[in-house]
C-alpha cells in the first residue's frame, strides 16, 4: 500500500533518493560524459617514468593536493544532503572529518578503468606504478583493489550517491553529540538505497556487498593515516609548509 514503514513513506524515500542523487551529480567533480570523452587516455611510458622519478615528498604533495580537491567536492555534496545541515556544527565536522576521504574512495570507482586497471589522476589514467615514488605500494594496491571491486558492482549514479550519503552519515563516529539524529538520517538513507536497489531489480546480495565495503573503507582510511604519520616523521617541514591546509586540518 505504498507504506514501507510507519515512519517513512515510499514517496519520502523517492524524494530523498532524488535530492541525494541530484546533490551527487552537482558535486561529483567529473561527469561520466566528460570521462567518456577522455576515452581513458593512459599515461605514456615516459610520463610514468617521470612520476616514478619524482622525489617522494613531491609526489606526496601532489597526491595530497588531489585528495584535498576531491574532498572539497565531498563537503559540497554533504551540504546538499537534506538533514545534514540541520545537524549541529560539531557533528557536521565530525562526519566530514571521518567520512570525506571514504566518499572520495567510493567516488574513485567512477574514474576507474577496470579494463586497464587505471584511475584518472592528474589529467590522464594512471596505473599503480605511477605512484611508486610515494613508497606506499600496499596502500596503493588496496585503493586500486577497492576501486575495482566497487566498479564491478556497476552501480548507477543514484545508487552511488545514496551509498556515499549512507557512509557519510555513519552514526558510529566518535565525538558525535547527537548520535540519534545521525542514526535516523542514516537509516532513512539506507531505506532509500534499498528502495532504489529494488526498483532497479538488483539481485539481493548487492546491499550486503555494499555493507562489506564500509569496513574496507575504514581500513583504507587507517592505512592512509598510518602512511601519512610515517611520512611526516621523516618530512615534518614539508607537511607543515607545503601540504594543503585543509588536508592538514583533517588528517594532521
Amino acid at each position: 500500500n505504498g507504506e514501507t514503514s510507519p515512519t517513512v513513506s515510499m514517496a519520502e524515500l523517492d524524494h530523498l533518493a532524488h535530492v541525494v542523487s541530484k546533490s551527487h551529480l552537482e558535486t561529483c567533480q567529473y561527469l561520466r560524459e566528460e570521462l567518456q570523452q577522455m576515452n581513458c587516455q593512459n599515461f605514456l611510458q615516459d610520463e610514468v617514468e617521470s612520476y616514478q622519478k619524482k622525489p617522494r615528498e613531491v609526489m606526496w604533495q601532489l597526491c595530497a593536493l588531489k585528495i584535498t580537491e576531491a574532498i572539497q567536492y565531498v563537503v559540497e555534496f554533504a551540504k546538499r544532503i537534506n538533514g545534514f545541515m540541520d545537524l549541529c556544527q560539531n557533528d557536521q565536522i565530525v562526519l566530514l572529518k571521518a567520512g570525506s576521504l571514504e566518499v572520495v574512495f567510493i567516488r574513485m570507482c567512477r574514474v576507474f578503468d577496470s579494463h586497464n586497471n587505471t584511475i584518472y589522476f592528474d589529467r590522464k589514467f594512471a596505473g599503480p606504478d605511477v605512484f611508486k615514488a610515494l613508497g606506499c605500494d600496499d596502500l596503493i594496491t588496496s585503493v586500486f583493489d577497492f576501486a575495482k571491486n566497487m566498479s564491478s558492482l556497476h552501480l548507477t549514479e543514484e545508487e552511488l550517491a545514496l551509498f556515499s550519503a549512507f557512509v557519510l552519515l555513519s552514526a558510529d563516529r566518535s565525538w558525535l553529540q547527537d548520535k540519534l539524529q545521525v542514526e535516523k538520517l542514516q537509516q532513512k538513507t539506507q531505506l532509500a538505497l534499498q528502495h532504489v536497489l529494488q526498483k532497479n531489480q538488483r539481485e539481493d546480495g548487492v546491499l550486503n556487498k555494499l555493507r562489506c565495503k564500509v569496513s574496507a573503507l575504514r581500513s583504507l582510511c587507517s592505512q592512509h593515516t598510518e602512511k601519512l604519520s610515517a611520512f611526516r616523521a621523516i618530512y615534518p617541514d614539508i607537511v607543515r609548509t607545503h601540504f594543503p591546509p585543509l588536508y592538514k586540518e583533517l588528517f594532521g
Binding site: V75, E76, I93, L246, E249
Partner: peptide
C-alpha cells in the same frame, strides 16, 4: 572541534554555490 577545524567550518558556512 570548531576551533581546530576552522577551514572545514568555513567551507560549511559558505553558501552552497
Amino acid at each position: 572541534l570548531k576551533e581546530k577545524h576552522k577551514i572545514l567550518h568555513q567551507l560549511l558556512q559558505n553558501s552552497t554555490s
